[in-house]
Design a protein around this nucleic acid. Structure first.
Lengths: 113, 113
DNA sequence: CGGTATCCGGTAAGATACTG
DNA sequence: CAGTATCTTACCGGATACCG
């Protein structure tokens, strides 16, 4: 597994959180999973149309490695995998929710200018 | 002014928020300002001992450009500047607060392992 | 004191091709 | 369908030197 975006150098709690959700797509992946509960690889490709296969696999893998997502593999042909939030991942809801509400306000403010 | 870390490509609210607070040091800068209310350049150098002068100036500048911080310059020798949150910046508190609480939990979990 | 200017390396992120 | 492998690019962030 490759490394994540930011190392935590100051021990500040906000830094630790950013370490998990930073990465160009992770916050959106999490946001969609909070809405949809479960997502397959091809679902994410639809939800994030401009992401590359490599980045999607990496960001999902890092979230799994961090214990935020779990991956369920069905041993069948054609293959099928499902990603969902772990109980630990669910605890991120206050963070994602706050980010969503603030971002909504911000988008409106930008649109009004 | 140089560009920020992530462009918002999907229009997702969480993305917009990440656009503002992403950057290796921004969340910590904001967190400290919520605690201290006001910070001078040299204060940040103490609070973030490992940041380079260039990065400190850049991250502060981007936060000012985004309307989150305001910069007050005193025309005197030696020069003196103060940074504080704008009213708009204050609205980020729910986000930073949620990140701080979650990060605290996470750090404890890591420490217990 | 509070910054800029310049140069540069590491790595996040992208494009494309291929596979069990 | 759900990914890897490989190569390449972009740019974030660091080091150093200098300035009003």
């Amino acid at each position: 597994m490759e490394r994540r975006v930011y190392d935590c150098v100051l021990g500040c709690p906000v830094e630790s959180t950013l370490q998990i959700i930073a990465g160009k797509w992770k916050s959106v992946i999490l946001y969609r999973l909070f809405q949809e509960k479960v997502g397959r690889y091809s679902d994410f490709e639809r939800w994030l149309p401009t992401i590359s296969a490599r980045m999607l696999a990496r960001q999902l893998g890092e979230l799994v490695a961090d214990g935020v997502l779990e991956k369920q593999i069905y041993a069948q042909v054609p293959p099928k995998t499902e990603y969902r939030l772990t109980a630990f991942g669910e605890t991120l809801w206050p963070v994602i929710s706050a980010m969503e509400q603030w971002g909504r306000q911000y988008n409106q403010k930008r649109a009004a200018e």
